[in-house]
């Protein structure tokens, strides 16, 4: 019989576990807040939430070192928050206020915080995979020890840039980690119904000489351990990894999409039996973390998100004079003399 795991014999210590929980819980509360603010018409345009997918963002970001780079999709709030970007900056950007990370010039789909290694969120499917490859090329070329991680959805595996980027990264043995968040749906369509293979990322790995890696994306510990292996491989010059994380999007695709295309009971099943936050909270308790400590984390995060919400609400809209700034590197937009 396997020895029961305890905090003492486990590879992840209590401090790290609380960090992982903190990160997941922050994403959960901030994303729920984003949804509420959307319904209040305070988050404008669109918004793609990672509710239910928090463990992936938390697990990878927690395994990263400070100079690592993240490349995200339009579903990028979670990854931006997980790298430590300010909650005011994120919510402010979603609300298109002057306090936003990009002062309202990018919006929900393009969260960027280069000071935290978040090299942008991109809303054209697939484009950021080659960019992450380029960042990894620079690291290899210049002898830097950072790794690029690129997060993308299951739908991305069917676009050409995914395949170009994988081949390229393997050919030049670049330090990049490709993370597919398979949440079962390509927007509104079940991914399995429009993909030739069962596991859209992992089943393609062999075409590029990569290991087929499938993990439980709703288990932050498993994500964290897998990330550590991939990062150490990348940092030791052994090239890229492709990791398919099985998860489930508890929200709609975007905005207020009710997800009517989902079979009855599916969402409830995932929420009840396989919610990453609930699971992780149980594990903390199982491993002997005091309820008080968990409550403290949760209280603190709620307070942080509440305060950030108020701060963002009271922030002015961006001033009109920034409309034409930062088109070109000289700070302006002049295309003629």
């Amino acid at each position: 019989m396997a020895k029961k795991k305890t905090l003492k014999n486990d590879d992840i210590d209590e401090k790290k576990r609380l960090e992982l929980y903190n990160s997941q819980y922050l994403i959960r509360v901030a994303e729920q807040r984003a949804y509420d603010l959307f319904l209040e018409n305070l988050v404008k345009g669109t918004s793609h939430l990672s509710l239910g997918q928090e463990a992936i963002a938390a697990g990878f970001a927690t395994a990263m070192q400070e100079n690592d780079k993240s490349f995200c999709t339009y579903r990028g709030h979670a990854h931006t928050l997980a790298r430590g970007a300010s909650v005011v900056g994120v919510l402010g950007e979603l609300m298109q206020r002057d306090c936003g990370l990009m002062r309202g010039k990018g919006g929900s789909m393009h969260l960027t915080d280069t000071s935290k290694g978040v090299m942008g969120s991109y809303a054209i499917i697939g484009a950021h995979l080659p960019m992450a490859v380029g960042s990894a090329w620079r690291a290899q070329y210049m002898g830097h020890d950072d790794v690029a991680t690129v997060f993308f959805g299951d739908g991305t595996t069917n676009i050409g840039a995914f395949h170009e980027a994988l081949n390229y990264a393997v050919v030049y043995k670049l330090p990049v980690v490709f993370v597919c968040e398979n949440n079962n749906y390509m927007e509104y369509t079940p991914i399995e119904s429009i993909t030739a293979v069962k596991n859209p990322a992992a089943d393609r790995a062999s075409a590029y000489g990569l290991d087929s890696i499938i993990i439980d994306g709703n288990d932050a510990d498993e994500v964290y351990r897998t990330a550590q292996v991939a990062y150490s491989k990348a940092r030791s010059g052994e090239g890229p990894s492709l990791i398919e994380c099985k998860t489930y999007r508890q929200s709609g695709h975007s905005r207020a999409d009710p997800g009517a295309y989902r079979p009855d009971g599916e969402l409830d099943h995932w929420k009840k039996n396989n919610d990453p936050i609930t699971r992780y909270r149980s594990r903390l308790i199982e491993f002997g973390v005091k309820q008080k400590i968990i409550d403290g984390i949760e209280e603190n995060i709620k307070r942080v998100v509440d305060e950030a919400t108020e701060e963002a609400k009271s922030s002015p809209v961006p001033p009109e004079e920034i409309l034409t700034t930062n088109v070109y590197a000289n700070g302006g937009w002049a295309w003629r003399n």
Partner: peptide, 27 residues
């Protein structure tokens, strides 16, 4: 190291150039 033959992957070529440029090179 500095003059590199790539596959026929125009998206990867421009994407790689862009990712490198964003992080400190001048490709």
């Amino acid at each position: 190291k500095r003059v590199i033959d790539t596959p026929i992957s125009e998206q990867a070529i421009l994407g790689a150039a862009m990712g490198a440029a964003m992080t400190g090179m001048r490709p």
